[in-house]
């Protein structure tokens, strides 16, 4: 068990190590005075903190709303609305993230909260769709067997439908995370801060080191999160 845990942790730890090393190296070895001014521990930690806040708040919110919404839409009474919603969501997902952020900017203006809200709305889509599709995809005979054996609707949902749909729901969350992590670096354009700040600053002052630092941390964050959720995905599906 402990050995397994170690195996689990080794890749994330390596990734965090690389990230930390890059930050320490670039902050301590600035190529010129502009880089030195722009790239301080204080600034790097601030954008990382902002980035994490963007991701976490929008993802937690989107997961809760998406899963609950998907469950509600899969109930027999709302099922046809669910079918319609599925199509709308599919179109919504095709809209590029930059367009979503830009449109939210025109309605709500600039700021961190606007960015969080835009990411939140955008991330709901895959989670909602997968939750609905996952529950909808549970074989009718299985649900009927459960009902026939005397499970009430709530038990059927929690003991049968949700566990069977779980891998698909997790896959939806994983898609949402990948999209969200990508979109979070764009938050800077509407004043949302985050790691995009470093990249944009670097591009505007033509300093590759700043661009590089921002890009490396953003990439590592994304790979780290994807890896972790991938492991969770592996763990939950023992039965196929």
């Amino acid at each position: 068990m402990l050995q397994n845990l170690w195996k689990w942790l080794i890749i994330p730890l390596i990734m965090l190590g690389i990230g930390a090393a890059v930050v320490i190296y670039t902050v301590n070895n600035p190529t010129d005075s502009i880089v030195a001014r722009m790239l301080t521990y204080e600034r790097v930690f601030r954008v990382i903190r902002e980035h994490m806040a963007l991701l976490l708040v929008s993802m937690i919110g989107a997961t809760i709303v998406g899963v609950l919404g998907g469950i509600m839409l899969s109930r027999p009474k709302l099922y046809y609305i669910g079918r319609v919603a599925e199509n709308i969501v599919n179109i919504g997902q095709t809209v590029p993230s930059l367009a979503v952020l830009a449109l939210f900017y025109t309605v709500l203006g600039l700021g961190f909260r606007v960015a969080v809200f835009a990411l939140f709305i955008y991330s709901i889509l895959p989670i909602l769709r997968n939750t609905f599709a996952g529950i909808d995809g549970v074989e009718r005979s299985i649900v009927e067997a459960a009902r026939g054996m005397g499970m009430n609707p709530f038990r059927v949902l929690t003991k049968i439908e949700l566990p069977i749909a779980f891998p698909i729901i997790v896959a939806g969350i994983r898609t949402a995370i990948v999209i969200n992590v990508g979109a979070a670096t764009l938050a800077t354009f509407i004043g949302g801060g985050g790691l995009g700040d470093l990249i944009v600053t670097g591009l505007s002052v033509h300093r590759d080191m700043i661009i590089f630092t921002g890009a490396v941390i953003a990439a590592i964050t994304a790979i780290f999160l994807d890896y972790m959720i991938g492991k969770v995905e592996e763990r939950v599906v023992r039965w196929t």
Partner: peptide, 15 residues
């Protein structure tokens, strides 16, 4: 239903 055993053609085992 708890007191009536129920078997269906598709069996409906919980995977």
């Amino acid at each position: 239903r708890l007191d009536i055993g129920y078997v269906i053609q598709e069996i409906g085992l919980f995977p």
